Amino acid sequence: MTLASLIDLGVDVDHIRRGLDSLNVADLKLVVDDVKKCGFRSKFILVEHPEQKAHRHLHHIDAMIDAAKAITDSAKTLAKAIFLCVGKAEARVHGCDLQKVHFHEVGAVDSIADIVGVAIAIDALGVQSVSSSPVPTGTGSITIDHGRVAVPAPATAEILIGVPIAECAIESELTTPTGAAIIKTLTERFPSARPFGPSPAMVAYRVGYGAGSRDLPGQANVLRITMGELQSGTNHPGQLEADRVTLLETNIDDATGEELADVAERLFAAGALDVWQTPCVMKKGRLACVLAVLCGGSKVTAMQNLLFENTSTIGIRRQVLERTKLVRRSVTVKTDYGTARGKVVTLPNGNERFTIEDDEAKRLATAAKVTTSEIREKALLAWRSE
């Protein structure tokens, strides 16, 4: 459906076919047709090929892509990144080494054509930024090589960790591992200010529609892709970064200030991005505080364990947040009081802003017996004069 949408968007299908042909898969044929779903016109893709039962490993697929002479290096890199996303999920689900993962359905010729075809199309479009609506997975159950499983399939669920999921009661698999890996990889490799959510402010140039093979009750089984230019000030590639973080919160009404400070130190030492306390009033009029922890997804378990072990909480609220960051770099400046480290951030309008690291300002101020304000002014002047 993604490949069909990109072709409907205007990507030359013959360009994609040449790239797929260079994979040297015998009798691979990409058939493109116009269909209607619930009255809406869209493109439909069918990958024709002889039946193959062989299961491929990641290195087999990488070698196949690397050997394709009609695919650009950037498209190859993107295709391999999508397969790596699937591979990591499969390795996690099956508890095996990444290089030993059998790709089953995703290693089939049609999935290889889908992923490589999407990479060729994205590369041809010169895409700079990708965002998506929350992902609908559907519900119910499906049968795969390993038997009956709930929707989303295990690999799909693993891939979509950290991705907003749209509520959907349709009993069908609406997002496959291939589709999940494509959208997750694209939003990570072509970051926008808000990877998932409502459409960003943009001037739309073209819209493409790709149809799925099934007919869904009450709605068209169609994927829509819009291509356009972000409006000024919404995002500037190279000046804004986007990622996802997890916010953990718990209400504490029986801890001393010293105990809370100790917990905060332990959380920071374990990798928390930020920790803060907000006064609140709980039930029965008890004065308390909301202890909040911001961390990366890989640190959630460690942060929760620290909170459970070092506070009296019996429950922790959790939510995944999308974050926009200014691009930053570390610099060293030479002042009259010594050398110090600082950081420079690039603003959306292209201007830069310098800030000396707080610990560095305190260190120089203590050694010179001056105020930190004077150190900050000297450091800023030193940076501006470079």
Rank of each mutant, 00 (worst) to 15 (best):
L273N: 14
Q219N: 11
R92T: 13
T246Q: 10
P50A: 14
L174Y: 01
R341I: 05
G197R: 09
L84Q: 11
D114M: 11
I225D: 00
I45Q: 03
L307P: 03
Q99V: 05
D66S: 15
Q52F: 12
S111M: 10
E229Y: 04
G126L: 08
L98Q: 02
A242L: 07
F354M: 02
K37F: 05
S213P: 11
R266N: 07
G238A: 13
E249K: 15
V300M: 04
V300R: 05
V116Q: 01
V290E: 08
P237H: 09
P154G: 06
M64I: 12
A270V: 05
R189N: 13
G350M: 01
G126H: 14
R18C: 03
G296M: 09
M282P: 08
A113I: 04
T335K: 02
R318M: 14
E265Y: 11
T335I: 04
F83Y: 06
M282F: 03
M303I: 03
K325G: 00
E352A: 14
R328N: 12
S385N: 15
D254M: 08
A54T: 15
Q52K: 14
P154C: 08
G238K: 06
T72L: 09
V320Y: 03
E158S: 12
H146V: 07
G228M: 08
S199K: 14
L23K: 03
S5N: 00
